[in-house]
């Protein structure tokens, strides 16, 4: 595993990416293209996702951020008309390899959606859903343990511990989103993909989720789509800028926000278009 990531690291460096030696590349996209029917929505995207870091995807609406994100755990498979080209790897393994089990992939690369979508079940059942499906708990006590620790990690435990049997849909929007994060954490994924997780939340709930993301990166690798420049600057270490289906520029967040190479990035960040 170490040797493999070393190889990838070199590959990344030779590809022009600036990776510090202690950074491990968790997922990698090469020449990723996506077609919806005949229409191409994503063109030749080369992007690395580093382990235990937060990678932010930014860019104007319709530029293909969600599309790229959904490639990473093959959620695009659920759209009949979508077709993916190029290569995406997770720990060096091609995720579009026919030998790969999509179900297993999605357990390793979890997803939190833009709109909170708790199941119409109790809070407990929402969090326990993934572990039950994947058989992660041998007995009820273990399951309880997983639910509790996931809710704690998602900073929802204090609010939810007295109402675990109430429906998840009865929570507020921000609580629901944290419930969805807890649900994703409960299956112990390696990577968590978040598609505008705060777009339905108020500033306080947003701050909580951002704080949470910052903590989560110690154990997980995170890719987040956001429309908020402040959010990208606050939570991410790397930022990738998309425009019209192309990856315009990718780099360390500090650099992207202070001294971007591309004029389009500068314009977008300073709010001149988009």
């Amino acid at each position: 595993m170490n040797i493999m990531s070393q190889e990838k690291l070199e590959e990344a460096v030779s590809g022009g990416m600036t990776a510090k030696p202690n950074e491990v590349i968790k997922m990698q996209g090469r020449k990723v293209g996506v077609f919806y029917g005949d229409k191409q929505a994503l063109f030749d995207v080369d992007l690395d996702v580093r382990q235990n870091q937060v990678t932010a995807l930014i860019g104007p609406s319709g530029c293909g951020k969600s599309t790229f994100l959904r490639c990473l755990n093959r959620m695009n498979d659920t759209i009949d008309s979508a077709r993916v080209t190029g290569k995406i790897t997770l720990d060096g393994e091609d995720v579009y390899d026919p030998k790969i089990d999509v179900v297993e992939l999605r357990a390793r690369v979890g997803m939190v959606f833009q709109k909170p979508n708790p199941f119409p079940k109790s809070i407990y059942e929402n969090v326990a859903y993934g572990p039950k499906i994947h058989g992660l708990a041998k007995n009820k006590a273990e399951l309880d343990q997983i639910v509790e620790s996931s809710l704690k990690k998602a900073a929802l435990w204090n609010e939810a511990k007295d109402r675990l049997n109430e429906p998840g849909t009865g929570l507020s929007g921000g609580q629901q989103q944290r419930l969805c994060i807890a649900r994703a954490i409960a299956v112990s994924p390696e990577v968590i993909l978040m598609d505008e997780p705060c777009s339905a939340l108020d500033p306080i709930a947003t701050a909580k989720v951002e704080e949470l993301i910052d903590e989560l990166k110690q154990n997980y690798t995170i890719v987040i789509v956001t429309h908020s420049m402040q959010q990208a600057a606050r939570v991410s270490q790397r930022t990738a800028m998309f425009h019209l289906g192309y990856l315009v520029e990718e780099g360390a967040t500090d650099k992207m926000f202070t001294n971007p190479d591309d004029k389009r990035t500068q314009d977008y960040i300073t709010g001149r278009f988009g």
Partner: peptide
């Protein structure tokens, strides 16, 4: 969104339908 949520957690199609 219900289907996506379940599939995104690594549930199979039939698990999604059943549960």
């Amino acid at each position: 969104a219900m289907r996506d949520g379940s599939l995104g957690l690594g549930a199979t199609r039939s698990e999604t339908i059943k549960r």
